[in-house]
């Protein structure tokens, strides 16, 4: 098995996958607790517009998609706050708009379906050094921001009204939170793709929640489940010769089943 790690592309995949797994699982826990699970799919689908625009304009895909995802995430929060529309409805509003814009741009640019496959289902084994740099820099930004705002984000996730009443700048923190989710979704797209991003952001926190621990333990468990999903997924895809994004998603689900079984057996 050690021969696996002699390949640079596998090393890159493990390194990038681990960083992405941690930030996805940590932010994902806040998303699940705030009942905004649909949001990751919404932003991922909306970011198709960014991917399409970057391909059509021959611009840097990560940068353009990142900007679009970031703006989509802030847009969801703005609609939620200013128009008093619930979070899931705001996501439902932006999701088809992003998806449709992406499809229109791709049609106009005559992009083939082959170009799109890696964005729809991820291509972690094709991660380059510059992709890795991007993931390390933005992953560190997300982690530092979460570390600084953890207490406040925890309070808001538990009870937003009381958090406001305690004088916390809830609206500003929400914008930062939604912006971080936008960045994280884009980083996760390279690993799992548009269709499977929730495998990294939603399933690991759900697995951790099965074990009914306190918040700090759940946060650590969530990250651990995320890392394990990515590692098992990469190894399984290498030996079974299957798509890595899908293998990660399925290993994530297998871990969820294991956590649920552990809960039932009170392990």
């Amino acid at each position: 098995m050690l021969e696996l790690f002699s390949y640079t592309f596998i090393q890159n995949a493990f390194f990038a996958g681990t960083i992405v797994a941690v930030i996805c699982a940590v932010l994902g826990l806040f998303i699940v607790l705030r009942k905004l699970s649909f949001m990751t799919d919404g932003i991922a689908h909306a970011s198709l517009a960014g991917i399409a625009a970057a391909i059509a304009l021959k611009a840097d895909v990560l940068l353009v998609t990142g900007t679009v995802a970031f703006l989509a995430a802030l847009g969801i929060n703005r609609i939620r706050e200013k128009m008093k529309i619930s979070g899931d409805a705001a996501i439902g509003l932006l999701l088809p708009v992003g998806l449709a814009t992406g499809i229109v741009l791709l049609s106009l640019a005559h992009v083939t379906s082959v170009d799109l496959m890696s964005y729809l289902f991820g291509s972690i084994l094709a991660i380059t050094s510059s992709d890795l740099q991007f993931i390390v820099i933005f992953g560190a930004i997300v982690l530092v921001a979460v570390a600084v705002l953890r207490k406040q984000m925890f309070y808001i996730a538990f009870d937003e009204d009381s958090a406001k009443a305690s004088g916390l700048p809830v609206s500003a923190i929400n914008y930062v939170f939604f912006g971080l989710v936008g960045i994280t979704v884009v980083l996760a797209l390279r690993v799992a793709g548009i269709m499977l991003v929730s495998a990294l952001m939603i399933i690991p926190p759900l697995s951790a929640l099965q074990l009914k621990k306190d918040f700090t333990t759940t946060l650590v468990l969530s990250a651990a489940f995320g890392i394990l999903s990515v590692w098992v997924g990469i190894i399984a895809s290498y030996y079974l010769g299957v798509a890595t994004g899908a293998a990660i998603a399925l290993s994530s689900f297998a871990l969820f089943l294991a956590a649920s079984a552990a809960k039932r057996l009170k392990l």
Binding site: L33, F154, F158, L209, D214, F215
Partner: peptide, 13 residues
Amino acid sequence: PASVFEVAAMGLA
């Protein structure tokens, strides 16, 4: 997933 201790600690947010 919040312990009683963690809930009380929210007051220090």
